[in-house]
Design a protein around this nucleic acid. Structure first.
Ligand SMILES: [Zn+2]
Ligand SMILES: [Zn+2]
Ligand SMILES: [Zn+2]
Ligand SMILES: [Zn+2]
Lengths: 163, 163
DNA sequence: GGTCACTTGATATAATATTACACTTTTCCG
DNA sequence: CGGAAAAGTGTAATATTATATCAAGTGACC
């Protein structure tokens, strides 16, 4: 964790969005990838919160603004953003979150609160290392790790009086 | 890993099926759960191979035998088997595999070959421990871990000549 | 035998994701 | 510049995965 949960609960989220979009512009420029209007809008909507977003929720919001937005519109943008490392897919939710470390190599590891839906991306280096090592010793060449821990976050664990 | 990959490649799979079904009978008896015909058949089909099975593939096979089998039939049986710890769901594949350690508490950890589709359930205690510890120190109460490593298995990594 | 909990049958529908093809925009090269 | 190639998008249809609902059957238990 880079910040405490309490700090997180009161954080200025619009700063998250701005910095995510800025980082995306930068990263795409560096990669010669095009962050088009559609893609930028999807990324923006993904960053609306720290909860995982469903593709069809994105679709619904975007279709309200422009009826020509159809499922492929959304899925293509998501595919692009995932390929650029700007968005992660949460397999156990069929949903998507913005990456908090775009451009930095990292294993994707998530703490997912089943109460409030908050997804916190973490980096526990030991976990990735142990897994890769165990895989290797089994003759398995690891390409990608899906690590998603479900449970209850700090806030949701605390009695109401302390919130 | 309890057995080597080479041994695995030549193993007597019918023994896997028999032991899985026997273990299931036992476990259900112990839990006062009913391993009905439907449920038993689904478990048997899940154990047809060490690859993850899609719900609709199960459905297709079962519907051939009995047209009254519909999606809920399969999903209900899968739900039951998962609840009993006899089957695991592979989130990143939307598919299902038989559990190799039914009845023993364990974290679910899988090595999934993207070439041949084989899913190997492993237990790397350090991974579960590190994850839980990191979660706890973030104030997160971990209930369930989804750990799925994609890549290429031993066999699929080796040059054709050595197979 | 009656009742209660559990299981299944049956129909419909929801939620998630992809294919295919035509068209437009951007890039890039000469 | 002009025009071909590549990348992106629009559009319609369809595939895949999963659940809701209600009625009927089954077995456990007293
Ligand atoms: Zn934020
Ligand atoms: Zn929470
Ligand atoms: Zn086997
Ligand atoms: Zn393989």
């Amino acid at each position: 964790m880079s910040i405490s949960k309490q700090a997180f609960d009161r954080h200025d989220h619009s700063a998250c969005v701005v910095s995510a979009l800025d980082a995306a512009e930068l990263l795409c420029a560096r990669h010669g990838a095009r962050l088009t209007g559609r893609r930028r809008r999807v990324l923006e909507l993904v960053w609306r919160s720290h909860q995982a977003v469903k593709a069809y929720d994105l679709l619904a919001q975007m279709a309200r603004e422009d009826p020509s937005v159809k499922p492929p519109t959304v899925y293509r943008a998501l595919d692009f953003l995932i390929a650029q490392g700007l968005v992660h897919r949460i397999e156990s939710l069929n949903a998507f979150v913005g990456c908090v470390r775009p451009g930095q190599a990292h294993h994707e590891q998530f703490l997912i609160c089943d109460d409030c839906g908050t997804v916190q991306e973490v980096e526990v280096p030991e976990v990735g290392r142990s897994l890769t090592k165990a895989a290797t010793s089994a003759g398995f060449q690891a390409d990608h790790q899906t690590i998603e821990v479900h449970g209850r976050c700090d806030t949701c664990c605390q009695p109401a009086s302390r919130r």
